[in-house]
Amino acid sequence: MADPSDLTQVLKDASGGSRTAADRLLPLVYDELRRLAQSRMAEERSDHTLQATALVHEAYLKLIDMDRVEWQNRAHFFALAAKAIRRILIDHARAKNRAKRGGGERNLSLDEALTIPAEGLDMNIVALHEALERFAEEEPIRAQVVELRFFGGLSGEEIAEVLGVDRRTVTRYWQHARAWLYRELQDDAGE
């Protein structure tokens, strides 16, 4: 009944913004990350530095059987997972912001917002997410590079495979998107 091209379509829909597929995946990704992080903490008491990116990769590995999956599907799985992680992070930040507002505090502390060392620009992840949505209206593919790299923790090579472009193009897209977003957030902050 179902053939692989259907799956590809579903996953593409998901990458294109459909929430259902990402919805399906989100609890899995999230649970897996938590679990990995926890078991890691339990095993490695001497080294408390969590390499979260490594965790994400391990979560991918656990969720799909990498050896047996064609790249095409794997790529879309990555895309979906990146989207899921993005939502996890955004939902989390929003929840925290709400809690903060309830408490009458306004400043975001380090653990919930990204602090950008350059130029002293403080940016929170929700603002970044919103800026990225605006960017995606003009440059959907480049915005996806951001999603895969910044949220999904994928390497340039992996992104190249997911998007079916060459490695250099990924770098160019990334640089453009990063500069665009930086400027956008600076403008936000200036307002």
Binding site: L33, V56, L89, A118, I125, V146, R178
Partner: peptide
């Protein structure tokens, strides 16, 4: 600078 160079998940997990 280093804006966004580290994945969000590393800073904001």
């Amino acid at each position: 600078g280093e804006f966004m160079n580290a994945p969000a998940i590393d800073t904001d997990l």
